[in-house]
């Protein structure tokens, strides 16, 4: 986190390194319009690095989003993107993935989009194990509509719609997703871009529904709660001895909302939606899956 060494850094060396690296290919031309300082920049950096490291071509990637600050994301990456309706991200992403297995589909959205208006969809996409990655940008507030409370806003948090403090207990998305049956659940933090990049890479690499929860401050509307300053003091890495195949251990760890552990909580390999559909195709005695056939050519 930051260069605390006094050893000089030389710009031309750094630029050469970045250029040869290839990451810039995943960026769009347009500069992101998020507020300066927004944690989403960190996520954007992480996603582009991850795709680059995994050598997934931009043309084979689709990013689907709903409504909200985070849902601007597809505009800032150089991939196929789909900016849909508020809360309806996951059904659209399911449709895209079901139509073409060869695509890497990444659904992105914020805490309001995913856990408020779109909350009904979460459980279903998780239990079906659609082979997509869902990256949840959690800033605990509605940024686009200028600062109302969200399902992950802390107790006691004051917003324009909870001027006398928020009395609604915040959701525990990690526990929800673990209990809904996500086959990959992890947590990252925008203030630690290095670690975040690694987590995104793992989430995309996972075969099945992967849910990555990212703590990301809203620098414009949250000056008191989930700020960089506060989160820096709270987050900690997952202990080395955590067994990521142990669901109960993962759920236990997800309880620690005051010192949120960062890293991989749970990972399980099991058939995806597409596997099931293929199975049904076979069971019904039908022909070869059209999607797979296309890919085979």
């Amino acid at each position: 986190m930051g260069n605390i060494s006094t050893k000089p850094v030389y710009l031309e060396d750094k630029l050469a390194e970045i250029k040869s690296d290839g990451k810039l290919e995943y960026r769009s031309k347009a500069l992101p319009t998020w507020c300066p300082g927004c944690g989403y920049f960190s996520i954007s950096e992480g996603v582009t690095s991850a795709l680059n490291n995994l050598a997934i071509k931009p043309k084979d990637t689709v990013v689907v989003s709903g409504i909200g600050c985070s849902s601007r994301f597809p505009f800032f990456v150089n991939t196929y993107g789909f900016h849909t309706l508020h809360g309806r991200t996951l059904p659209v992403a399911t449709g895209v993935k079901t139509a073409n297995d060869d695509l890497t589909v990444i659904a992105v959205g914020g805490d309001g989009d995913g856990f408020a208006i779109g909350g009904g969809h979460l459980s279903h996409v998780a239990r079906r194990n659609v082979n997509i990655t869902y990256i949840l940008f959690d800033n605990g507030i509605y940024g686009l509509t200028k600062g109302q409370t969200s399902p992950t806003s802390s107790l006691g948090f004051t917003t324009s719609t909870t001027p006398y403090e928020n009395h609604d207990r915040p959701l525990n998305p990690l526990m929800m997703m673990l209990s809904f049956g996500s086959s990959w659940v992890g947590q990252g933090y925008a203030g630690d871009p290095g670690h975040l990049g690694e987590m995104i890479e793992q989430a995309i690499a996972h075969r099945g529904f992967s849910y990555l929860h990212i703590l990301s401050p809203c620098v414009t509307f949250d000056k008191t709660d989930k700020t960089y300053g506060n989160l820096n003091m709270q987050v900690k890495p997952i202990p080395d001895d955590h067994d990521s195949s142990d669901l109960m251990a993962a759920i236990a760890m997800a309880q620690n909302v005051h010192k949120p552990p960062l890293g991989l909580y749970y990972k399980e390999d099991r058939p995806t939606l597409a596997d099931g559909l293929d199975e049904i195709t076979q069971q019904s005695g039908g022909g070869k899956n059209v999607v797979t056939a296309k890919a085979a050519e």
Partner: peptide, 27 residues
Amino acid sequence: PITPATTIMEKLATEMPKVGGRLLQTE
């Protein structure tokens, strides 16, 4: 919340509890 109606709820959120009213932001 939805632009441009949001401020109605925001203001009511401040005013209503003062006279015992109840306001809830739904999903």
